[in-house]
Design a binder for these strands. Structure first.
Lengths: 233, 233
DNA sequence: CATAATTACTCTTGTATAAGAATTCATGTA
DNA sequence: TACATGAATTCTTATACAAGAGTAATTATG
């Protein structure tokens, strides 16, 4: 079973990006150089780079070159924060409250997170949108994979950008389950809504470029002035 | 302002599929034939076909050929019906009740639907999942674009397959807004849940291959034993 | 002489073409 | 039935040329 050459090139570059050898913003070798280095033609290197561009891992511009995609707070929000105003516009949520602590993993977390960690770091955050609507998020990550993260509070607003910059862990996909649930008393107090209010509840598994489930996140929020928007293809 | 050749090829094939000249399941000309017919090389025809495959409009198999994607009830459900069991498995919903009627479009519908129709057809359906959970859907389409549809009840379970087969209208995208809302008394009666139960409310605009908004659909359902699942990239 | 505009050059990716390999499927034959 | 053969298809790789972007040299201009 032999991989095609262009796939070998893809895997090589993915590995270099995942390892941090090619950091965000770095310029990749040109098609010609890459082909010479890996012993394939320029056209084959080109095919690989095109596929990586489709995956969003690199960005290309005629005359300039190919660059590792820089995940800015804006682009990260655009991709992975689906809450929008009714007119479709987006706003950056503000951090209202944050607690970070290290604890033992639950059975479910050990099952689902990459490496079946014994200890996890739990990031509990309350975020607010401009008109006062609140979002409660609990993110759970492996303590060994993100060593020392629990001592670096306060954390940046967009965690995935931070994961990439500080740990070379690049989130490329998120699988989500959505439910509508009534607010319990704790929810009601946190989110400043009456108990029993219908909340949108999102359970997310975030997956990195090496196809590892890196984070489990549960979000709860009302949808009075905002909606979760998505495009199915 | 000149389109690249491969884009001309893409547009040509899209137009043939949208017009019904290439019906679902039809075999496309081979790369060589297509190239000869349109005056481009085999490689350029190939590039166009590859892009159409990525869009899901055609399916290709080495040694067999290229075929217009057949939208089966299964594939249509997989793409556009996001409700799944907690284990990720999918089941086909059963039709419990259906009413189809023709009426004047509301201002919002005229705004949003392609062609700003004066009259629309409203398809009101109640569907059930295996364990009894109910889903209420209201689909609204242009009466002129879907002439005679209101006299063809009962309609098939999967409308998008029917749209393609009977009207050559191919849905390729759906933009959705999700909210959590309490069940009103009408909801409660229809869905057999207590009034005030948290419901997931989905407003969908379905878009066809020519980028026209063809249908507006509003769904409401509880998420006790099922969840709306989605993968973000 | 200083400075701005132009030109030429080199590097990059984008587009187009072609040839051979791999796969599938039908058909003929033992 | 089993197997070989051949024709048709897509898949992989390679190569040539076009076009965009940046830089340095050159020229024009005050």
């Amino acid at each position: 079973m032999e991989r095609p050459l262009y796939r070998v090139v893809i895997d090589t570059i993915v590995e270099r990006i995942a390892s941090g050898a090619l950091p965000p913003g770095a310029m990749l070798p040109s098609e010609t150089q890459l082909g010479a280095e890996l012993g394939v033609s320029q056209g084959t290197a080109r095919k690989a780079l095109g596929e990586l561009e489709r995956r969003g891992l690199v960005q290309r511009a005629q005359g300039r070159g190919t660059f590792v995609t820089v995940r800015t707070p804006e682009s990260s929000l655009f991709n992975f924060f689906r809450l929008r105003n009714v007119d479709g516009s987006q706003e950056t949520p503000n951090l209202e409250h944050e607690t970070v602590r290290r604890r033992k993993a639950t059975a479910r977390e050990r099952d689902v997170l990459y490496g079946a960690p014994h200890d996890v770091i739990e990031i509990d955050r309350l975020r607010s949108l401009n008109d006062g609507e609140l979002v409660h998020e609990i993110s759970v990550i492996s303590a060994s994979m993100f060593a020392g993260l629990d001592e670096r509070a306060p954390l940046p607003n967009t965690l995935y950008v931070f994961y990439q910059q500080a740990y070379s862990i690049i989130i490329v996909r998120a699988d989500e389950q959505l439910r509508a649930q009534p607010a319990c008393s704790a929810d009601a107090e946190r989110l400043n809504v009456p108990e029993g209010t219908a909340l949108l509840c999102v359970e997310r598994l975030a997956i990195d470029v090496l196809d590892r489930i890196v984070e489990r996140r549960v979000s709860r929020f009302p949808t009075r002035s905002h909606a979760y928007i998505i495009s199915l293809t």
